[in-house]
């Protein structure tokens, strides 16, 4: 570790523009967890996330000149990630969907022997309901929960209006509630 302060994100991006792979590594390290989480939120398939994340970051490196610097970098990065997830889903549509039961168990430390069977079942139902949502609803939900992004930021990432974000979020949550209630009853 050097003695100087850490380079700012702006400096790192400027260096990536010049092809500096060390700056690129630092950008990846900064955002890898968030991109993995976002991709999982949209794809709902832990097995696919790493491949798509690689694709996202390689696009960031090779097309960094497309980032005009007018918006925040993460807005652009999340847009690249959501678009890559959408493209990936399109490719997968030809293949049968992965059954939810085959997905990896959640590594959140909440589900373990201490958790009651009922709570685990409710969580399973919530995840199944989220997985059944249309992709554009999942994208909005994932972006909202990713960093608590504001509605306007979500609108910037998805290039839709603020009203569209609000209505998608409202509908997604209403759909989840309906599905959960129908399961519980």
């Amino acid at each position: 570790m050097g003695m100087g302060s850490e380079p700012s994100e702006g400096d790192l991006i400027a260096r990536v523009r010049k092809g500096d792979t060390e700056a690129f590594r630092q950008i990846v390290e900064k955002y890898e967890r968030r991109v993995f989480a976002l991709l999982y939120g949209v794809l709902r398939d832990a097995h696919e996330v790493e491949d798509v994340a690689q694709e996202v970051f390689m696009k960031v490196f090779t097309r960094i000149s497309a980032f005009d610097g007018k918006s925040k970098f993460y807005t652009w990065l999340y847009r690249v990630a959501v678009n890559a997830a959408k493209d990936h889903r399109k490719k997968l549509r030809r293949r049968p969907a992965v059954a939810l039961e085959e997905s990896e168990p959640p590594p959140d430390g909440l589900s373990g022997p201490r958790e009651s069977a009922q709570t685990a079942e409710i969580r399973r139902l919530v995840r199944a309901a989220i997985a059944e949502l249309p992709e554009h609803y999942r994208s909005v939900l994932a972006l909202r929960e990713l960093q608590g992004l504001h509605y306007q930021e979500i609108a910037d990432v998805l290039r839709v209006s603020l009203g569209t974000v609000e209505s998608r979020l409202h509908r997604a949550r209403a759909l989840l509630k309906r599905r959960l209630q129908s399961h519980v009853q």
Partner: peptide
């Protein structure tokens, strides 16, 4: 639950990508 269950990046993910980036053609818009 929206983001719960997301996998963690594998160790060395960033370093591996940086290695691949060194060989990748950069599109200068």
């Amino acid at each position: 639950e929206v983001l719960a269950g997301a996998p963690e990046p594998p160790p060395g993910f960033a370093a591996e990508l940086a290695r691949r980036a060194a060989a990748a053609p950069v599109l200068d818009l």
